[in-house]
C-alpha cells in the first residue's frame, strides 16, 4: 500500500488564531451551536417583548414577568423609575436577565452561541483581543450571587402568586372564588417548580451554602445543603432550559387568556 502525500495541513501547528469556524471535526458540532442560537434567540426576544407589552394578568393568574403584583399598580407602572431610569415595572425583567445573564450555564451558552468564543470545542475563533472575564463589561459576571439573592426574593413572590392562583382570596382576588384548580394554576405551579429547581442548582448558591468550606464535616447542616444543591446543580443546564421555556409558556398562556382566546380551557375547573 503506497503512501500518498497530501497538501500541507490546513490548521496551524502551533497555538494561535485558526480562523472563525475552522476545524477538522467531522461530527455535527454546529447542531448544538445552532440550537442554542435559535432557542436563546427566540425565548430571549419573547421575554423582552412580553415584559414591555403589559397586560400580564388574567383573572387570578399573574404572568411571571409581572410579579410581584404591586409593581403593576397604575401609579407605578412605567411611571416610577429607579435612579438608573429603569421603570419599576421592569424590575422583574432586570432580575431575570441579571440572574440568567450572569449564570454560569448561560455564560457558556451565549459565549458559544453569540460570541463564537468558541462556537464549539476545537473550533476556530475570529477574535484576537480575548480577555475572558478579566475586563469590563464581563467583570459584571462576578455579581452573579447578588442577582441570585434578588432572584430568590422574586421566587418567593412567584410562589405566593401561585398560591393566589389556587386560592384567589389569599391575594385579595376573592371575586374569582375561594378555590381555583384551573389549568392556569397548574401551569403556574409547574413554572415555580422549574424555577426553584434552577435556582437551587445555582453555582453561587452551592458555593455559599457550603462549598466554600474546606472542612465539610465541620458544619453538617451546610454539608447537607451543599449536597442538595449539588444534586440540582448536576442538571443545571436542563433546569435552565426547562424553566426558561416554561416561564415564557406561562406568560403566553396568561396573555392569550387575557385576550380571550382560552376561556373555554378554564371552564372545566377554573373560576368562570
Amino acid at each position: 500500500m503506497a503512501e500518498v502525500r497530501n497538501a500541507p495541513g490546513t490548521q496551524p501547528l502551533t497555538p494561535g488564531k485558526a480562523g472563525l469556524g475552522v476545524t477538522q471535526r467531522q461530527d455535527p458540532w454546529w447542531a448544538e451551536w445552532l440550537g442554542t442560537v435559535v432557542g436563546l434567540g427566540i425565548l430571549g426576544v419573547y421575554a423582552f417583548v412580553a415584559a414591555e407589552m403589559g397586560k400580564g394578568q388574567w383573572g387570578p393568574y399573574l404572568s411571571p414577568f409581572y410579579s410581584p403584583e404591586f409593581l403593576q399598580l397604575p401609579k407605578l407602572f412605567h411611571v416610577a423609575t429607579l435612579p438608573a431610569g429603569i421603570p419599576i415595572a421592569l424590575i422583574p425583567l432586570v432580575v431575570i436577565l441579571g440572574f440568567r445573564g450572569t449564570c454560569y450555564y448561560y455564560r457558556k451558552a451565549y459565549y458559544r452561541a453569540f460570541f463564537a468564543d468558541p462556537a464549539g470545542c476545537a473550533v476556530g475563533e475570529a477574535r484576537t483581543d480575548y480577555a475572558g472575564e478579566t475586563r469590563w463589561p464581563w467583570l459584571i459576571q462576578n455579581a452573579h450571587r447578588y442577582f441570585m439573592y434578588l432572584a430568590t426574593i422574586a421566587l418567593i413572590f412567584l410562589w405566593f402568586d401561585t398560591v393566589v392562583a389556587f386560592f384567589p382570596g389569599v391575594g385579595g382576588h376573592s371575586e374569582f372564588g375561594s378555590v381555583n384548580f384551573g389549568l392556569g394554576s397548574f401551569v403556574m405551579l409547574l413554572n415555580v417548580i422549574l424555577l426553584s429547581g434552577y435556582t437551587f442548582g445555582c453555582h453561587s448558591l452551592r458555593h455559599l451554602i457550603g462549598g466554600k468550606n474546606d472542612c465539610m464535616s465541620c458544619e453538617p447542616s451546610r454539608l447537607a445543603g451543599w449536597k442538595a444543591a449539588s444534586k440540582f446543580n448536576a442538571k443545571h443546564m436542563q433546569w435552565a432550559w426547562a424553566s426558561l421555556f416554561w416561564v415564557c409558556a406561562t406568560d403566553l398562556y396568561i396573555r392569550l387568556g387575557g385576550l380571550g382566546y382560552l376561556q373555554h380551557v378554564e371552564k372545566w375547573g377554573g373560576w368562570h
Binding site: 454560569y104 459565549y111 478579566t134
Partner: peptide, 26 residues
Amino acid sequence: GFCNITKCCTEVCPEEIHITDNAIIP
C-alpha cells in the same frame, strides 16, 4: 478570569472529571 467556562475541558476529559462545575467555578 480568562476562563469563560465554555466547558470544553470537561467535554474532553477521559476521566470524566467535572472540571468546570466542581473545580473552576468553585
